[in-house]
């Protein structure tokens, strides 16, 4: 649990972080200098606000840190939120950043000959086994998921499986690996996620932060 009365904000490493930083700045959060230092091995950072610390973790772990209350709030894509489906996670605000799509894709040759309506079982390589299973189950299809942590596009080419479920932003990676989109499972964007118990027990402080993020998102929209 968070020590003292500090709130902890969990941010995802990598691509999303760059897109989310402008929102953080507009919300008045300025992390300490080592946050932007690529050589820093620190994982926890102070900010200009003495009552707010930032942790930087893998995007999938943001949801877990926040769901268990180790961080009070964080930034996570709705792909991650849906994958874990933690009951203790609130997603009150769409940050309108890190936009992409979660899609089912398959090799071009396969798509040409088959009819998705006839599927009863599919084998899928994905980072999102739970979400994938639920999605196919809803359509009456049993999905056997092979959990991979990256380079999903390689799987069909090397015969691991014929289909994948993965994030797509421009579609370039799919294309260069001979894959085409079959269906979109969901549009993805970054959300502000909040721990349920923290929102209740620290309603005023967290409510104020949600308000500041909301204004920051609206401010960004006006500027664009």
């Amino acid at each position: 649990m968070s020590q003292d009365d500090k709130l902890i904000l969990a941010l995802p490493k990598g691509r999303i972080l760059a897109e989310v930083m402008p929102i953080l700045h507009r919300a008045g959060i300025a992390p300490e200098a080592s946050f932007d230092d690529p050589n820093s091995r620190a994982l926890r950072f102070t900010t200009s606000d003495p009552r707010l610390d930032i942790i930087r973790v893998r995007s999938f772990d943001v949801a877990t840190f926040v769901a268990f209350g180790a961080a009070d709030f964080g930034v996570a894509g709705n792909d991650v939120v849906m994958e874990f489906d933690y009951p203790e996670l609130y997603a009150p605000l769409d940050l309108e950043a890190g936009k992409c799509r979660l899609v089912v894709a398959a090799p071009e040759a396969l798509v040409a000959v088959e009819d998705p309506a006839q599927w009863s079982h599919v084998r899928v390589a994905t980072k999102y086994p739970n979400l994938t299973q639920r999605y196919f189950a809803q359509r009456g299809v049993q999905a056997e998921c092979i959990k991979l942590n990256g380079a999903i596009e390689l799987a069909p080419m090397l015969g691991l499986c014929r289909r994948i479920v993965d994030l797509v932003s421009t579609g370039a990676t799919l294309k260069s690996n001979g894959l085409v989109e079959i269906e979109t499972i969901t549009d993805v964007s970054s959300r502000l996620v909040v721990n349920r118990a923290a929102l209740k027990t620290r309603a005023t402080a967290l409510g104020a932060w949600i308000g500041r993020f909301r204004s920051a998102v609206e401010g960004g929209r006006d500027a664009a």
Partner: peptide, 11 residues
């Protein structure tokens, strides 16, 4: 809608 409300998922 209930699921979305339970997660405070305004979007």
């Amino acid at each position: 809608l209930r699921v979305a409300l339970d997660h405070k998922d305004a979007a």
